[in-house]
Design a protein around this nucleic acid. Sequence first.
DNA 1: CGGCGTTGTATCGACATAGATACACCGTCG
DNA 2: CGACGGTGTATCTATGTCGATACAACGCCG
Lengths: 229, 229
Amino acid sequence: MTLEKGFEPHLAIGETTVTGRDIEMLRAIDRFGSMHEAANELGRSYPHLQRRVVELEEAIGQLTERVRGGEGGGGTQLTPDALGLIRQFERLRVELSGVTTVPESVISGTVTERSGELATVRTAAGEMTARVPTRAEDVEIAVRADAVVLIEPRSPAHDRTSIRNQIPGVVTGVAIDDAIATVTVEIDDGVMIESVVTEESVDRLGITEGTDVVAAFKTTAARAITADP
Amino acid sequence: MTLEKGFEPHLAIGETTVTGRDIEMLRAIDRFGSMHEAANELGRSYPHLQRRVVELEEAIGQLTERVRGGEGGGGTQLTPDALGLIRQFERLRVELSGVTTVPESVISGTVTERSGELATVRTAAGEMTARVPTRAEDVEIAVRADAVVLIEPRSPAHDRTSIRNQIPGVVTGVAIDDAIATVTVEIDDGVMIESVVTEESVDRLGITEGTDVVAAFKTTAARAITADP
DNA sequence: CGGCGTTGTATCGACATAGATACACCGTCG
DNA sequence: CGACGGTGTATCTATGTCGATACAACGCCG
């Protein structure tokens, strides 16, 4: 039984929310220069589509230049704001899909010290700092693999960065697919951290199975959730 | 006009998808030990709620122990699988909400070279590498602020890490809230990158307005979308 | 000046969703 | 043995969504 992670993005302003359907609609309007043809293409009714455009504009501001009559009967062009809206939505979708496609490492531990939203967590692989939104004792720290940096050991001056969690380990696996490598680092017996890096970085740092590396990640990229409820 | 980023998470298996409403329902059943009281609490009709439980179980497997008659008239208890499902859903929600709560930086540029899913992008602030899923020419690179590392300039050996994008800039703003700082770095005239770091890092690196820093992020954490729809 | 293909608007009907109601079934408890 | 409070199920109805239809308004074009 494997459940597939999914999501539906939206952008909200006041009562109205811009959905994927709206973006699809705006893109069709842009493609055809006509709400009528857009409605046809999408298999939607023109009256509702037109109504929706007005509704969005009432909430967000001008999104279209609609002309009635004239050459070709008229038409509808998107404003730069509308194009920006489409891009913003697409960025949101891409970033969210990053969550569902990038692997995540989970490390359990217990909170030893708190400071605001941050906390120090004692784990099998040593102490780490993470964001701990809820008041919790036993936690699981989750780190996205694309937030994990691999550092060559014995290279100096790594307190000169904002990366506070730097955990030495040994590479136990390297899987390369289409110029992107997923590197598994064992930071304690049976405790793994995954990192996705470019194939170029793997080559440059000479990473293969058995290599000593430091797996590093920012405190703000590590999120803890309570382990129990 | 600021649009608030949002999303609706779900878990899919075959035709049926588990929504936030389903999770809310399961949690209410767990709280009361009774589907009837759960329906009351949520203001939902018992028949549909009961039907939905059966539907979910047909897709996922046993989620409840439902007994009819007996002490207190019977009742419904969640199985460990159901509790695991709730946790899985909650974790997905937390991961996704990371995207909507952390600021993103957007940098436009044009693709100059491709290698698999990766590409080199020329921007006003120099060349960067990013994930570019679609075949695109003009792109926008989006980077999450919690993936941006701040590095002290003139510190050596930063080719000894898997961070390929290292862009010098000047700090133009530091906003501290609850031990977490949002640092704005100007990497070119009017082009900003935001980074969220701990207050501790801000102090340690001596970051204030006007400080020279290097804003760095991994290629795999930078995602590009087409600028033209 | 009429035709054409748009935008704008009112209205109807099909359909899905979800609450409301009613009732059979079940097993313990007083 | 009947009351009680739960599960299981059929059915009706209110509601909202969305496509379908119809028609007015508009302005270029032949």
